[in-house]
């Protein structure tokens, strides 16, 4: 098939961007969307032009590196599918496809379709862990976990941190990502000791990063490639409310005092 591509080009975070227009022929339906872009890039490189910069790595839908807003949808038109797992059989000859980077203030463009998502990592670093050292730990079967609870926790933990929720949200909110990370640990017995300090610290960091607030548009859930449920957001809100009432005190420095 033959396609017309409108692709966002931007030299770096400081420059002004624009749409580049490209015609691409001989696109096969068993190509993935990124392979279609690879073909375009090879043609550009062979003729000495600068290829379109975009992020991707595992191309199996799990590393969360790939992104792209395709015709206005994060990761394209298919539900529960990352861009790398989107195949050209869902397009037809003569289609015009507009390809943009994630659009959010908290995710500045680095080049073309690549954005800076380090804000997500800083949210994790604020409290997305169980404090521990490496070494001997209790026998895991000494703390039985209902399979339903383990599965729910995994439903949240399956988040790949791609940022589609932010790109999909009219407000650029990162509530779904943060809620998934909080719920993963908050549901498990191992996550209980730090449950309320965790939610407080992570939500505060999320706010600091400049993400927008949640207005229940639910676009995040609709465009999440892992179909993470927004029920986790209510779970996070409940925990956060409780945390503000409890006001957990970070006693680390006191505990470390000699």
């Amino acid at each position: 098939m033959k396609l017309h591509l409108r692709i966002w080009r931007q030299d770096d975070s400081q420059s002004k961007g624009h749409f580049g227009e490209y015609d691409l022929e001989n696109v096969r339906e068993d190509m993935s969307f990124l392979e279609m872009l690879d073909v375009l890039n090879e043609q550009l490189i062979d003729s000495g032009q600068e290829p379109v910069a975009f992020d991707s790595d595992c191309r199996e839908g799990v590393c969360g590196m790939c992104s792209l807003v395709i015709n206005g949808k994060a990761h394209g038109p298919l539900a529960g599918t990352t861009t790398c797992q989107l195949y050209m059989r869902h397009y037809k000859d003569g289609d015009v496809i507009t390809i943009e980077p994630w659009r959010s203030e908290a995710f500045p463009v680095i080049r073309d379709l690549i954005v800076d998502r380090t804000a997500f990592d800083r949210i994790m670093q604020a409290g997305g862990f169980v404090t521990l050292h490496s070494g001997p730990k209790p026998e895991p079967n000494s703390i039985p976990i209902e399979p339903e609870v383990a599965e729910q926790s995994l439903d949240a933990a399956t988040c790949i941190g791609c940022g589609a929720c932010v790109a999909a949200c009219p407000n650029g909110s990162a509530m779904l990502y943060t809620a998934a990370k909080i719920s993963h640990l908050g549901l498990l017995p191992q996550g209980q000791p730090e449950r309320y300090s965790r939610v407080k610290q992570m939500v505060e960091q999320m706010d600091k990063e400049g993400f927008g607030s949640c207005r229940n548009y639910a676009e995040c859930e609709a465009q999440c490639p892992k179909e993470i449920s927004i029920n986790f957001v209510s779970q996070m809100n409940r925990d956060y409310l409780k945390a503000t009432l409890l006001e957990p005190v970070d006693r680390r420095s006191k505990m470390n005092a000699q």
């Binding site: 521990l132 730990k137 895991p140």
Partner: peptide, 17 residues
């Protein structure tokens, strides 16, 4: 043991094992 302590949600049987 280490992974479970970190909160890795391994598959469980109905009894929680």
């Amino acid at each position: 043991d280490q992974a479970v302590a970190q909160g890795v949600p391994f598959a469980r049987e109905y009894g929680g094992m």
